[in-house]
Design a protein around this nucleic acid. Structure first.
Lengths: 148, 148
DNA sequence: CAATGTGTTACCATAATGGTAACACTAAGG
DNA sequence: CCTTAGTGTTACCATTATGGTAACACATTG
């Protein structure tokens, strides 16, 4: 199962979009995600490394989107938090090279699973953080931009 | 990451296709996969539950494909070994309902990740065990049907 | 210089995974 | 009828990934 980092990352980016230029702190975001600020910072570290967010250090600091929400797809987020790892595991131990199937199955599996992963990423690539924000709004029409 | 059960399951089903009507033992298949017979049987249990394979008990027994390899897609295999689990984890703890984003993000995420999973499964659905067998053969033209 | 943040590290508990052994049960074939 | 060769299932272990937590160095504001 793909770790909850993806879900939390999308959540964080959506929060940043509501910030509208004001940097948000990891403590504030942790309050919305319902977890520990360090967990948020750990994920922000991945997002920053991928160029999706930008931190402002020091007092009064926090994190901002590094580019418009319309220009951040869920594929970008997925690749950022999964660090380009392959989606499907292959065998733990190399299959038996003396067996014609064992000798060749991994090459075939790499193609099949690679195609599946590409299909998944293309689907994710069709949705942006701005789309997610719009859907969140339409779920809850009288939405305020801050926590109560 | 999706567990290696999927890779091993496809491997097993491909082996069964090479068997051409003769039941194969878990020990033989474990020799090709390079693991323990009980690991193979554990996965066979999932495949049998999904109606993809059929076991013949007792001495001289083993496992057969329950239907032609052309009628078993990688989507069938995926669903069999992942037991219909969702591909993307959501938050561990429920997000803060006092936050407009926290209150609605999971519904939005379920749609987005559901669509991604569907795209993945559709891609897997376009490839059968027979296709895999053919690709294995074409990787290794002078392929013999048994281990040396 | 104090206060408020980030970034990073280290450590822990938990869950999933695959490897292993064991054992009840089933069927074939002498 | 009994031996042999299988499956199906359980239990247990070691390893790994994960998320929660605390701690602390560093940066920035005022």
């Amino acid at each position: 199962m793909i770790s909850s980092r993806f879900a939390v990352a999308v959540h964080i980016l959506t929060l940043l979009e509501t910030g509208r230029g004001e940097p948000l702190t990891s403590e504030y975001m942790a309050g919305s995600v319902n977890t520990n600020p360090a967990v948020v910072r750990r994920i922000l570290s991945l997002l920053a490394r991928a160029g999706l967010t930008r931190a402002r250090m020091g007092a009064g600091g926090g994190t901002l989107l590094a580019r418009p929400a319309e220009a951040i797809t869920l594929k970008d987020v997925y690749r950022a938090v999964e660090c380009g790892e392959r989606l499907f595991a292959l065998h733990h131990e190399k299959p038996n090279p003396k067996c014609p199937v064992g000798r060749n199955i991994q090459a075939v599996l790499e193609r099949a699973t690679g195609a599946a992963q590409t299909a998944l990423e293309e689907q994710l690539g069709g949705r942006t953080v701005a789309d997610v924000m719009a859907e969140v709004r339409s779920e809850d029409p009288d939405l305020r931009s801050a926590m109560v």
